[in-house]
Amino acid sequence: MTTTLLEAPARSAAAPARAPIEHLAIICSKGTLDMAYPGLILANAARMSGIDATLFFTFWGLDIVTKKTVDRLHVPTVGNPSMHIPTLVGGLPGMESLATTMMQKQMEKLDIPPVQEMLEILSDSGARLYACRMAMDMFGRKKEDLVPQVEEVISAMDFFEKAAGAQVLFI
């Protein structure tokens, strides 16, 4: 029996180069620590590479940019399949704060700043931060409840205008 291997098409000079990403728009919809960091770190990596970054905080993602909660985001130990511990154990008192402290320490070791500082870095880097009007109304929050790095409270339709030309990522 013979097997024919299909040759991968060689990238010739004539082949059009893949267009680089120029704008990344991230919808942050979760407010746990383990779901907050990916969006923030990706946006920061984009800015560091010269890619525009727009962040839209909606639903529980609002907690990431709310003054009262920004320093109190938790790693959930119940209903989090990535924890690899039985749900019953995850529900024991103190487990959630233990997991949160562990993650914070690990982040610190990797020189990744706390969420508040991450937001400051992002804003300084020129990333644009927006909060979702509907989620704000739903949770009864006002613009002054949010960290100053959030530029504006906008609707989802406004967000799509701000995200023009972007690759949109939902977290």
Binding site: R47, G50, S125, G126
Partner: peptide
Amino acid sequence: LYALFPKGPGKL
């Protein structure tokens, strides 16, 4: 840093 290296200070 972003003003000095506008096209991506991380790499530049």
